[in-house]
């Protein structure tokens, strides 16, 4: 199945949805949102692209194996626990830099953890979607 309308629409919807997922990720610490739902929205964006253009195009667009996204996400989540030990506080205590960055806000270990969750959820959802798509090809 190939639809010109859906294919063109998905090409414009993909960056919009990715921006929205990134917005959810960055807002997540103090307001509703966070890594999990951001990852799900990003996975929905790629799933839309896959339905419109086929699984090969979507995998080419992603540029990385989903399993690699999963491992990088887990690694980031583990890395984010280390500064709390180095500083001498309890394990997994949030450590924040004092400076405020424009657009992002304060940077700290919870942000690193959230980015890890984002990549992990994106990788797992894409892995499931792509394996189901390749199953009946």
């Amino acid at each position: 199945m190939f639809s010109v309308i859906l294919s063109t629409a998905s090409r414009y919807l993909l960056p919009l949805l990715l921006i929205f997922s990134f917005f959810l990720l960055l807002r997540g610490h103090n307001e509703p949102g966070g890594g999990f739902v951001g990852g799900l929205v990003a996975a929905a964006a790629y799933a839309l692209y896959f339905i419109a253009n086929g699984v090969d195009e979507a995998e080419k667009l992603l540029k990385a194996e989903p399993i690699r996204l999963i491992s990088v996400g887990l690694f980031l989540a583990v890395i984010s626990t280390i500064p709390s030990i180095l500083i001498g506080k309890n394990f997994m205590t949030g450590v924040w830099l004092d400076t405020n960055f424009p657009l992002i806000g304060k940077i700290g270990t919870p942000l690193v953890f959230d980015v890890g969750v984002y990549l992990l959820v994106l990788g797992i959802a894409l892995k499931i979607i792509f394996s189901l798509a390749e199953e009946d090809r």
Binding site: F20, L24, V37, L40, A44, A45, A47, L48, I51
Partner: peptide, 16 residues
């Protein structure tokens, strides 16, 4: 925002 996400997922579900 929940409404926006629900709209995306509903559209995706119908297309799928």
């Amino acid at each position: 925002d929940v409404g926006v996400i629900l709209a995306i997922l509903a559209f995706l579900g119908t297309v799928a």
